[in-house]
């Protein structure tokens, strides 16, 4: 028996929005710890890693580990049938292992819907990602990062991110010319969410495809802040924290000189 109740049901809409450009299907792994998902896009250039801890749900029961192969397009259709203020419960019954049920309850309990969705048998590749001490971790407002990625993609297909203790610089070049955006570390801020904070061991310069970074910024509604973790010649980690529950992380392989 698996049952996970989420009063803030609209969170699932935001999570699906944040995966839709990268994934069409994925396996949700459910255990007593929580629900997690790890999946690469079809080109294997980027990876989505979602964690929703069990203690972040309003009720959570998972008697035994369960892997649910989900067509995310189908799940999106079903989740769109919920209202933003609905309570969402995800249920899976051991006696009926090929389906998952989504139940939506209006806040006043006057409307209750349930949708049963067929599960898929997915043969997904799982990557072992080691714990890494990154050379640079930048925390910045998620909306600011979204704006930078959007603006850089007006200029070119790739962005070079150069991070020093003074700040973070994004550079792009293309047929029309070049663009640079430099954001300094905040001197002092009243609101933590508006701060730009750079923790640095060594300066790093890396180049990434903007197409994927723009896909990652679909998660902007999940969190006020985003963190970018970088080390020389390794994948970038872009993390959006999901308050009191976990995170949505994206990994992106860099572009490197041959």
């Amino acid at each position: 028996m698996f049952e996970a109740r989420l009063v803030q049901g609209s969170l699932l809409k935001k999570i699906l929005e944040a995966t839709k450009d990268l994934l069409t299907e994925a396996t949700f792994d459910c255990s007593s710890t929580g629900m997690s998902l790890q999946a690469m896009d079809s080109s294997h250039v980027s990876l989505v890693s979602l964690m929703l801890r069990s203690d972040g749900f309003d009720a959570y029961r998972c008697d035994r580990n369960l892997s649910m192969g989900i067509n995310l397009t189908s799940m999106t259709k079903i989740i769109k049938c919920s209202s933003n203020d609905d309570v969402v419960t995800i249920k899976a019954d051991d006696n009926n292992p090929d389906t998952v049920t989504f139940m939506f309850e209006s806040p006043n309990q006057e409307k209750v819907s349930d949708f049963e969705m067929k599960l898929m048998d997915l043969d997904t590749e799982h990557l072992g990602i080691p714990e890494t001490d990154y050379s640079v971790v930048v925390k910045m407002p998620a909306q600011e990062f979204q704006r930078v990625c959007r603006d850089m993609s007006q200029i070119g297909e790739s962005v070079t991110i150069c991070c020093t203790k003074d700040g973070i610089r994004f550079s792009a070049s293309g047929d029309l010319g070049t663009g640079n955006i430099k954001i300094a570390q905040s001197a002092n801020v009243d609101k933590e969410e508006e701060a730009v904070v750079i923790e640095m061991q060594e300066a790093v310069t890396l180049t990434f495809a903007l197409r994927y970074l723009n896909f990652f910024t679909r998660a902007t509604s999940l969190s006020g802040q985003v963190s970018l973790s970088m080390s020389p010649e390794v994948p970038l980690v872009v993390e959006y924290k999901i308050a009191d529950m976990g995170y949505m992380r994206y990994y992106l392989a860099p572009k490197i000189e041959d």
Partner: peptide, 14 residues
């Protein structure tokens, strides 16, 4: 001159 790497260049399947 720069080539897009894949994640499998960096991480192993488990």
């Amino acid at each position: 001159p720069q080539r897009q790497r894949t994640l499998t260049d960096f991480y192993r399947s488990v």
